[in-house]
Design a protein around this nucleic acid. Sequence first.
DNA 1: ATATTTAATATGTAGCTACATAATTAAGTC
DNA 2: GACTTAATTATGTAGCTACATATTAAATAT
Lengths: 233, 233
Amino acid sequence: MIRDERLSWKEVRDQIRAGILNRTYAPGDKLPRDADIAETLGCARSTVQRAMRDLSDAGLVERKRKGGTHVRTDPVTRATLDIPITRREVEKRGGVYGYQLIDQSLGVIPHEVARKFEQTETTEMMRVQALHLADHKPHIFEDRWICTDTVPEILNVDLSRESANEWLVRNKPYTRFDLRFYAISADAEIAECLKIERGSPLLVIERTTWIGTAAITLVKAYTAPGYEILTSN
Amino acid sequence: MIRDERLSWKEVRDQIRAGILNRTYAPGDKLPRDADIAETLGCARSTVQRAMRDLSDAGLVERKRKGGTHVRTDPVTRATLDIPITRREVEKRGGVYGYQLIDQSLGVIPHEVARKFEQTETTEMMRVQALHLADHKPHIFEDRWICTDTVPEILNVDLSRESANEWLVRNKPYTRFDLRFYAISADAEIAECLKIERGSPLLVIERTTWIGTAAITLVKAYTAPGYEILTSN
DNA sequence: ATATTTAATATGTAGCTACATAATTAAGTC
DNA sequence: GACTTAATTATGTAGCTACATATTAAATAT
């Protein structure tokens, strides 16, 4: 611990947060200036600033230059999600990971895929369908489009040995991505791949990635029944 | 902009990240000490530290005292999610928000609920079932348990006028929470409430909240078909 | 050889100063 | 009065120093 007299930024943060939680500062209220808080608590402004940044990152307060710091009126639950590569996810749970390429082809991307890439002139991409296994049972079925203009190297990769995701992560790190979650009902094809009944509810993790503005890939990961996404908090 | 000669921590961060992306520093590699990077780039160590903290928060590198900074070997897609209160979510999209209490009662919590609260001696809690509407159509059906030991005031709140969530957010801010997402198939009850067909796939957002270690509430929010969760990035 | 203590080292934090930046408010100007 | 410009102000950032903390590595004792 730090010398008792000195306040750590976490202590400062907790004091400010306590003040917000116990309504000393209600939603919408303006908090004192950093400098004043610093003087009140007997610490440096930099310490208050560090504390405030944390509260701001957590979505509790809003800060504006000259405008000061305000307690947010529309509280949000802000959570951090870690989506690991599937191999890691399975192995971390002590399971045996398996991978199986189902189909690989070149084709014209559907309109919906083009729209998700936001702006791309490319109309033909590589489509890869594959199955991830956990303990020899279907775990995730992925349906992926890879932009061969941005990632021409993918044409020479043997995707029956290594999953497209792992190759991409190692060779084409993205600079921007988009994630979305939703539920669908398994159609005949997905049901067969995952060895489940048609109509089973599935959680879909959809991820689009870019390098700058250039599209890399769009994956729809159809997770096996019972799959859950948890926050890391 | 800052005087050209001076590097901002974002520039430093971007340079380090570029080095990681272009494999100057491969996964698992050790990066130079902050002080060395600072000297190389001609900035202060504090600037490098600020940059490094950002990269560490983003999950790109791992830092350990004395151990130094390493590029993470298991890349994760780290995303930030904002889950607003339902009213805000609907209104932000320009929709008309509506709320309807369906049922409110005291009862013994199922074993599964007790487990999710992790450790609570309370066995009887208040159960609240309610419907959130968007543009007069069912939007989210919520099934909630509220710990009356932690939040006795809830017994005197008229939950037909205000949703439990909004009351809780204003009066009992949580200090810790847990989020999970999964898909289920609508059973008869949920199907009726949401006015959809039985068996429709639904995305469920489940949230447990605590004050310290004291349980506050557990909600299962059954979202109407077509509902999506998006990352804020 | 093994356990314990000590030293070395890289990151983390607190405090200070100085200046940058954004946003608002006040002061001019037409 | 409406528009422009300048002053004001609160947060943001960069640089510095000093010390705290955690962890590893080396030295010493058992």
